[in-house]
Amino acid sequence: MRKIYVIGIGAGEPDHLTLQAAKAIGRTDVFFLLDKGEAKQSMIELRQRLMKAYGRPGRRVAEGRDPDRDRTPADYQGTVADWRSRRSAVTEALISENLLDDETGAFLVWGDPTLYDSTIAILDEILSRGRTLFDYEVIPGISSVSALVAKHRVPLNRVGKPVQITTGRRLAEGWPEGVDDLVVMLDAQQAFAAHPEAEIYWGAYVGTEDEILRSGPVAEVAEEIKETRAKARSDHGWIMDTYLLRRPPAAEERGEG
Rank of each mutant, 00 (worst) to 15 (best):
L34R: 03
L33D: 09
D70M: 04
R87D: 07
D66F: 14
L34N: 08
L46C: 06
L50E: 03
G37A: 13
A81E: 15
G58S: 05
V80N: 10
G64F: 14
E45Q: 14
W83Q: 05
R71K: 12
A39G: 02
T104R: 06
T28P: 11
Y76M: 06
D70K: 06
A53M: 10
T104V: 15
S42G: 00
L50Y: 06
L46A: 10
D29K: 03
D35E: 15
A74L: 11
L46E: 06
G37H: 06
G64I: 07
D75F: 07
D75L: 12
V80R: 12
L46H: 10
V61D: 01
T79V: 07
T104M: 03
T91V: 15
L100K: 15
N98P: 11
P73D: 08
R59L: 13
M51K: 13
D70A: 04
S88Q: 02
R86A: 11
R60A: 09
S88F: 09
A62L: 09
A62E: 11
R65N: 04
R47G: 09
R27K: 15
R86Y: 11
A53K: 14
A89V: 13
E38N: 12
L34Y: 12
D102L: 09
D82S: 15
G55R: 02
S85T: 12
G64P: 11
R49Y: 10
R49E: 12
K40W: 06
M43C: 02
